[in-house]
Design a protein around this nucleic acid. Structure first.
Length: 581
RNA sequence: GCGCCCGUAGCUCAAUCGGAUAGAGCAUCGGCCUUCUAAGCCGAGGGUUGCAGGUUCGAUUCCUGCCGGGCGUGCCA
């Protein structure tokens, strides 16, 4: 039996589903799914098969009788025992022996039972900040979610390319460049001025609003920039460089894996844009309408059922982001050879990206076997339920959230564990604070809007990263006391708390699988939270260090596997752990 | 107007693509530290899943209508 087959068996859900589906199909006479799922309620066992009711209906028989027949020849002796419940559910209880045996093999596996999948080349487009603005709370989602996805995809073996499609081009740079030039002419040192980017942005935009002649100059800078004016470009370069330095600082603080090499900015596509237009023209997709070059596809309708254009080139000759995004699809398939491209981009871009993908397909930039997927997420709302607007100046800066999180965490750790040295407390504060913010974001990952609230986001109790991190330190603390890391022996399950924990540990591979199923990190968050709940119950009920052998070693092994799973799971979320806190 | 998304406990969020009695955390109330870190554990209260219908063994989930909110709907990105 190859390693891969062995690992497939470690996926309990698959194992059971296969057995139930095959047996049920035999009874029905045609392909019939067993529909095995994790049980929702402990009294229903560990798993339940829900397929019998639908099958019985097809056969027009009594579901409970069909279930009887099914479990007679299911042939899973030793792994589980079953019972029929309700209208025809089959409840599945795994045996302690089976669970223990599986645990004993998983504990030797460095990837915790997760099989490596067939390798795909996957581009993940995330974060993508606008360099003309400071990163604010709205960037949190794309950045945290995207980075976690990247980590999980790499963990299962995919060839992942991070794509940070930063906005470094366009009209918004006019006032910034004009302001830079003005400062330079006044003899100010630009490098000093640019250290506080936020102040710089505000000053420039204030001037733009109040000073008519400045606004005029600003607009002229946009034209100069697009025409490749050297002086202008050098100012622009200086600004971009500083701005990227700033965003890299945020990434580093937030423990995001994006590096400068992952940046492929909008401007990088500038010279491809005319080619895109030319290629669309050659394929006779391009139509001139109201002075702009557009692609009209039947599936897109605008107001009053009028055809909705995808504008590739504006009437003034400039290129809107439709063109840039098309060039990016072209680059990703033709140059990078991507099998799949995931866009972690806000839901407000839904129509835009649908158009991008559709036009790119029509143009032949995306082939049948290449999958482009938009993973939308909702906006960030203020406490009053309204959206943050860039204009109203009420943005919460990302860097401020992180700093506040670290500060609060420092106060808490100083109170909880004053014995730790100041530098240790600083390190704990960093890991805990950042973890809290990231987990707050990832754990409620649904494509709906969410309300930003300092206290909710920076909570350290309950369903939070610090809770998971704390559970980890509890285990590490035990091992420090035990004074050993190398354990000879095996897991034997006695108490129910041990069995529950054991089954949960075995469900890590299933969790990774369903996390990637919908690309939803909150599935992983939920799992880790429940795992900790089970562990902490075990921790209260089952003494470890004072237990008799072989129970002591068995429990230490359970602790070890819990710690490994926790650390791995948190790492996949981009959250660090500490030895004590 | 049209399109997409959303509406779940006082608050913030879940619910494994149709499963059993809708779950957590926070907040409130009550227990547990001279056994491994109390950022923890155990327990209580709190719900007509926006409203009204429909589909079926079974609906927070699917369909229709209505109410309420968000986003988008040709030259910002």
């Amino acid at each position: 039996m190859g390693l891969r087959t062995l690992k497939a068996l470690m996926n309990i859900k698959h194992l059971l589903d296969k057995a139930f589906s095959e047996a049920l199909s035999k009874l029905v006479g045609s392909d019939t799914p067993g529909i095995v799922k994790q049980a929702q309620r402990e009294e229903f066992g560990h798993y339940q098969a829900n397929g019998v009711m639908a099958a019985a209906k097809k056969l027009k028989t009594n579901p409970r009788e069909l279930a009887e027949k099914l479990i007679e020849d299911i042939g899973l002796k030793g792994t589980c025992f079953t019972e029929i419940a309700g209208p025809g559910f089959v409840n599945i209880h795994l045996t302690s022996d089976f669970v223990a045996q599986q645990l004993n093999s998983v504990i030797k596996d460095s990837s915790l039972g997760v099989p490596s999948t067939e390798v795909s080349k996957i581009v993940v487009d995330y974060s993508g900040p606008n360099l003309a603005k400071e990163m604010h709370i709205g960037h949190l989602r794309s950045t945290a979610i995207g980075d976690s996805l990247v980590r999980v995809l790499e963990f299962v073996g995919h060839d992942v390319i991070r794509a940070n499609h930063v906005g470094d081009w366009g009209a918004q740079f006019g006032s910034l460049l004009a302001y830079m030039d003005q400062l330079r002419q006044a003899g100010q040192s630009l490098s000093t001025e640019l250290t506080d980017l936020e102040k710089f942005y505000q000053a420039a935009s204030a001037l733009f609003k109040s000073d008519e002649s400045f606004a005029k100059t600003a607009r002229s800078y946009v034209v100069r920039l697009q025409n490749g004016d050297n002086e202008c470009l050098s100012l622009w370069n200086q600004f971009i460089e500083e701005s990227i330095r700033h965003s890299q600082e945020v990434y580093e603080k937030f423990n995001i894996t994006l590096g400068v090499n992952d940046i492929r900015a909008e401007s990088a596509y500038n010279n491809v844009l005319p080619i895109v237009v030319q290629e669309l023209e050659e394929q006779q997709l391009l139509v001139e309408s109201e002075g702009a070059k557009c692609v009209f596809l039947d599936e897109f309708k605008g107001k009053g059922d009028k055809p909705l254009p995808a504008i590739i080139q504006k009437s003034d000759g400039g290129y809107p982001y439709m063109a840039t995004d098309l060039a990016a699809t072209r680059y990703r398939t033709q140059e990078l050879g991507a099998d799949k491209v995931l866009y972690v981009v806000g839901g407000e871009q839904l129509l835009h990206l649908r158009q991008v993908f559709a036009v790119a397909k029509a143009a032949g930039y995306i082939h049948e076997d290449q999958e482009f997927l938009h993973l939308p997420f909702g906006g960030v709302l203020k406490e009053d339920g309204l959206r943050f607007k860039t204009r109203d100046g009420a943005d919460v800066k990302l860097i401020d959230v992180l700093d506040e999180a670290i500060l609060r965490a420092f106060n808490v750790v100083s109170e909880k564990n004053p014995a730790l040295s100041e530098s240790d407390r600083g390190e704990v504060a960093r890991v805990v604070g950042i973890g809290a913010v990231k987990y707050a974001e990832l754990s409620k990952n649904r494509s709906t809007d969410y309300i930003f609230d300092w206290d909710t986001m920076l909570a350290f109790e309950g369903n939070t990263a610090p809770y998971l991190q704390y559970t980890y330190t509890r285990i590490r603390s035990m091992f420090r006391r035990a004074g050993t890391d190398s354990l000879q022996g095996s897991i034997v399950l006695g108490e129910n708390a041990e069995l529950r924990l054991g089954v949960k540990l075995l469900q890590f591979p299933e969790t990774i699988e369903s996390t990637l199923d919908d690309y939803q990190a909150n599935v992983l968050c939920n799992y880790l939270y429940e795992l900790c709940g089970f562990f902490n119950t075990f921790y209260e009920q089952c003494p470890v260090l004072i237990a008799e052998e072989p129970s002591k070693t068995s429990r230490l092994l359970l602790c070890e596997l819990t710690a490994k799973t926790l650390r791995q799971g948190l790492e996949l979320l981009g959250i660090e752990t500490v030895e004590q806190m």
